[in-house]
Nucleic acid binder design. Structure first.
Length: 110
DNA sequence: AGGATGACCCGAT
DNA sequence: AATCGGGCCATCC
């Protein structure tokens, strides 16, 4: 048997799987998502991966924010993400989300 | 094979 | 609070 490395399963696949678990009305940071995907410190990779998502994906790409709880998307994506978040009850106050409130997972939630 | 790239992150100013 | 610099990691060319 070979010891599994972080590159064994496609990073993309692992990120997809992790993202699929983020519940509605909650959000994750790129960094956190990377960890959950078993790719610690690969926050940037998560970003470029989401960038390539097919626009018809069913994955909750909009529930991903940067470590400051802000949207890291250039227009026009920015607005789309903001609207989607608001649609599921995630409020942006002064352009940012309170991660201690909507952040996922919270202690003991996994 | 080696260097550039990016929906990032964090500590220090 | 706003900037800056250096670090990070799988991909792409």
């Amino acid at each position: 048997m070979q010891k599994p490395t972080s590159t064994d399963n496609d990073a993309t696949t692992r990120i997809y799987l992790a993202l699929a678990q983020v519940p509605e009305g909650r959000v994750v940071t790129y960094g956190r998502l990377a960890e959950l995907a078993g790719l610690p410190r690969a926050a940037r990779l998560v970003g470029s991966t989401l960038r390539k998502l097919p626009k018809d994906t069913s994955l909750p790409w909009h529930r991903v924010l940067n470590a400051q709880g802000k949207i890291s998307l250039p227009q026009p994506g920015f607005q789309r993400q903001r609207d989607r978040l608001q649609a599921e009850g995630v409020a942006l106050i002064s352009g940012r989300v309170d991660l201690t409130l909507y952040g996922w997972p919270r202690q003991g939630e996994l």
